[in-house]
Design a protein around this nucleic acid. Structure first.
Length: 456
RNA sequence: GGUCGGAUGGCCGAGAGGCUAGGCACGGGUCUGCAAAACCCUCUACACCGGUUCGAAUCCGGUUCCGACCUCCA
């Protein structure tokens, strides 16, 4: 958390929110933990090894914790806008230094880590003697050791390691390093992977059901998490590892060098050279769910606008279900759609298929509204249930409350103008009718010297 | 170079041996004072080259292209 939320951050929360909602729909009690990385880690890419939080803190002239806090708040706000349910627990790495140290000690006493100059490294080769390192990501340790093609990379701190594949559990901090804590090995800070292992273990136990994340974290992060936890507890910490794929923009990966990074706020405001217009948080959510989570997802104006229009169609249909004419007979079996939705979700969370089914339901609604299809009471109720449960409940798509205030005021002003015109032409029947109708609806109209005003 | 994942109609995106999702756009129509919405119809695609099969977008082999990851950092 050292920068504002951008398109690369957007997919995970939505995908896992739908997973959570679906599990809850199935009757499971879900404990959702989402951790915040707020301890400094070294900056790569040949930079002088300054930690990212510290660097950002220096640039903004604030405390590192302020940086983390600012962007955590921004991230959560983005999630709220996209109707992502807040996690049950949101632990911070900096608040779990003790747990991380304890875990490191436990790994050391198992003989799978060693200390060098105040830093502690995980001994991958020792671990691999009895366990499989690289299984999750399909890596073969021998290939990793060979490291073909990477000889040219100058990596920091390599000389301290017994083996290049070893990774840091604890790093010795130089005095000028802003974030540091006392430990059995001196002043320092935890390695990247250990925070997740320590926090998930604390709140979810030695073994829990599902661990999520982006595909980019598969190796080495999650692989190392498995190794650490296994070294401590003897178990792979998660029964299932769920990885979502990455996002591309106009067919290209999002990268600083390509200058195609789009911030969440830029998407919502349309304030970016690559964006033809603003796209709402719900459009974004719907757009994400129209693709399967394991495939790459490509952002383009055309694709986003297609999603926006499609979503509108779906919402229109859902909104009119309660007003559908009811017949004695039914020409459509809604249960088929409900069953298909559940089947699709059980098939590796296939939200695009669920959405396709919802569009089918929308067509049914529209046909019924047009009087071209007969639906009986139970069919209409089933349709209502379908949209409530699936569109709003599980997919988490809700009506957006954008600009309602301004629109309402515009409508009232228009009516007041029409009433003023009626009064001017002495058409008091019409002017009174407007006021009476508005009063009936709960508005109070006050005529003043400078025209009329309204309140609700 | 290695590992893994991709390539589907104008665009986005499901599917995974026969039943040829869905959305958006385009075109035609119904409706309509005009417009919009809605509805109906139309548009039959699976990177390339071989092979297996009665039948391949789907399986096998090869080729090309794209992406992620590849010991630090997140």
């Amino acid at each position: 958390m050292y920068g504002p939320p951008h398109m690369g951050h957007v997919r995970g929360p939505v995908v896992f929110d739908v997973l959570r909602r679906y599990l809850e729909f199935l009757g499971y009690k879900v404990r959702h933990v989402r951790n915040i990385t707020d301890v400094g880690h070294l900056l790569g890419d040949g930079d002088e090894g300054e930690d990212k939080l510290g660097k950002q803190a220096r640039l903004e002239q604030v405390e590192p914790m302020e940086v983390a806090q600012t962007y955590t708040v921004a991230y959560n706000e983005m999630c709220r806008q996209m109707n992502v349910l807040p996690p049950g627990i949101e632990p911070r790495a900096s608040g779990h230094i003790i747990e991380q140290i304890e875990m490191i000690e436990s790994i050391m006493s198992a003989g799978l880590a060693y200390e060098v100059n105040g830093s502690v490294y995980f001994d991958v080769l020792a671990y691999a003697k009895t366990r499989d390192y690289g299984k999750l990501s399909g890596r073969v340790l021998e290939d990793l050791i060979a490291g073909v093609g990477n000889e040219a990379r100058e990596l920091e701190g390599q000389d301290e390691k017994r083996n290049p594949n070893d990774f840091a559990l604890w790093k010795n901090a130089s005095p000028e390093h802003i974030m540091q804590w006392s430990s059995p090995w001196g002043k320092g800070y935890p390695g990247w992977h250990i925070e997740c292992s320590a926090m998930s273990r604390k709140y979810l136990g030695d073994v829990f059901d599902i661990h999520g994340g982006g595909m980019d974290l598969l190796f080495p992060h999650h692989e190392s998490e498995i190794a650490q936890s296994t070294a401590c507890t003897g178990h792979n910490p998660a029964h299932f590892w769920v990885h979502h794929n990455m996002i591309t923009i106009n067919g290209q990966k999002m990268a600083k060098s390509l200058n195609n990074g789009i911030l969440a706020d830029e998407l919502f405001s349309g304030n970016h050279p690559l964006l033809a217009k603003a796209y709402s948080p719900m459009t974004l959510r719907f757009f994400i769910l129209q693709a399967h989570y394991r495939g790459t997802l490509d952002f383009s104006n055309e694709a986003l606008q297609a999603a926006e229009k499609g979503l509108q169609r779906l919402m229109n249909a859902a909104a009119q279900v309660s007003k559908l004419p009811v017949s004695d007979t039914s020409e459509y079996n809604v249960a088929d759609i409900l069953n298909a939705c559940e089947r699709s979700m059980n098939e590796d969370l296939n939200t695009p298929q669920v959405i396709a089914k919802l569009f089918e339901a929308a067509r049914v609604c529209n046909s019924a509204a047009d009087g071209k299809l007969k639906l009986d009471r139970s069919a209409v109720e089933a349709l209502n249930n379908l949209f409530q449960t699936w569109l709003h409940g599980i997919l988490g798509i809700q009506t957006e409350e954008k600009g309602n205030e301004a629109a309402l005021d515009g409508v009232l002003q228009m009516l007041l103008t029409m009433r003023a015109d009626a009064k001017a032409s002495k058409n008091y029947t019409l002017s009174d009718e407007i006021r009476n109708k508005l009063t009936e609806l709960g508005f109070s109209i006050k005529d003043g010297k400078d025209g009329s005003s309204w309140s609700l």
